[in-house]
Design a protein around this nucleic acid. Structure first.
Length: 321
DNA sequence: AACTCCAGCAACCGCAATATG
DNA sequence: ACATATTGCGGTTGCTGGAGT
């Protein structure tokens, strides 16, 4: 904390604590409180939240102030819908790190751990519930890995294609996305590589079935400033994120790199280029039936289009079902 | 229009780790 | 080295607004 000497002025710390305990406010923050907190931090900086709360005249705990600042008032906090790319990244990172919300949030600039946690609980866990399986079960993880994530990739690609085809320059389509993933803040990215558009974990021991393989997509010179003018088309860029750029036949990538059952996948590939060889087919179809009709009738943007009628038809053809 | 239900989100709680005196 | 304070994290709760009846 910077210049905070209000402890010296305000009597003993014990007194302060007693005073605070008397009339602490709880619940939703008012506009006035927000303003007070923003103002105070603008002048004095963050840190030492308990004394900050006192000195700012806020009848809140330090914890409450910290949370309000970090999750809501901070200028760089990103609000609004979680984008497809962010969804994909959350799924991927969660498969690696589990409920390490804070760690995951570090890789989604502007997003808070709370937001990601809420997203996970409200969207992802909801689907696990619908499928009547535990969110940590292998079945559910496979579903994410082999159905949702490829679907998200497709939708990201489709969105990029649409935008590009719409007559805008290749850089236009990247704007919102790239803003979401600045190569940033010298945070420890571990094995994460940052592409010009997407943060993708690099190969090795990722437990996502090597969907991403050892993608060669590092863009070392990336900066938030130049990102929006990337010359590479968004489509190819995104494709690169999921297929190795040195593979001439991208569609073969998953088959060849899939550690679970390459022999199996040699014979079948879904319309999207992915198929789940590690998962019981009947289970997949049953799951899909639940999703495509919205499960309990609660179809939403997440399940929509992830697994559609054509896919079922295609798989039925393959399996003579 | 009134009511109920429920998803989404902000905020709180408890605990562990870390910093400070 | 120890006690206490503070911070950070993950889990949980409760409020709110919109959808459905």
């Amino acid at each position: 904390m910077n210049s905070n000497n209000c402890l010296e002025m305000g009597g003993s710390e014990e007194d302060d604590q007693m005073n605070m305990m008397e009339d602490l406010r709880r619940g939703p923050w008012t506009v006035e409180e927000d303003f007070t907190l923003i103002n105070y931090i603008a002048h004095h900086g963050e840190g030492r939240w308990n004394s900050l709360a006192r000195c700012a005249g806020l009848k809140r705990t330090g914890k409450s102030c910290r949370l309000r600042w970090l999750n809501y008032l901070r200028p760089d906090v990103r609000r609004g819908n979680i984008t497809l790319e962010e969804q994909l990244l959350i799924l991927e990172l969660h498969s690696r790190w589990g409920n390490r919300w804070s760690k995951i949030a570090q890789h989604l600039p502007g997003r808070t751990d709370n937001e990601i946690k809420n997203y996970w609980r409200t969207r992802v866990q909801k689907h696990a519930k619908q499928l009547k399986c535990d969110v940590n079960s292998k079945q559910f993880k496979d579903t994410m890995r082999y159905l949702w994530m490829p679907r998200l990739v497709e939708r990201i690609q489709a969105a990029a294609t649409t935008t590009t085809a719409g007559g805008s320059s290749s850089s236009t389509a990247t704007t919102s996305t790239t803003n979401s993933y600045p190569l940033n803040q010298s945070n420890n990215m571990d094995n994460i590589v940052v592409t010009s558009q997407l943060v993708v974990p690099q190969g090795n021991n990722i437990n996502c079935g090597n969907i991403y393989g050892n993608t060669q997509i590092i863009t070392p010179s990336y900066t938030p400033e130049n990102s929006s003018t990337t010359a590479v088309s968004p489509v190819s860029d995104l494709t690169d994120c999921y297929y190795p750029t040195n593979q001439s036949q991208n569609q073969d990538f998953f088959q060849h790199n899939n550690p679970i059952g390459s022999g199996f996948s040699d014979t079948i590939i879904s319309p999207s280029g992915y198929f789940n060889p590690g998962m019981d087919f009947q289970t997949m179809v049953e799951q899909n039936n639940q999703w495509s009709d919205g499960g309990n009738g609660a179809g939403d943007e997440f399940s929509d289009n992830l697994w559609n009628v054509e896919d079922i038809w295609f798989l039925k053809q393959q399996f003579n079902m």
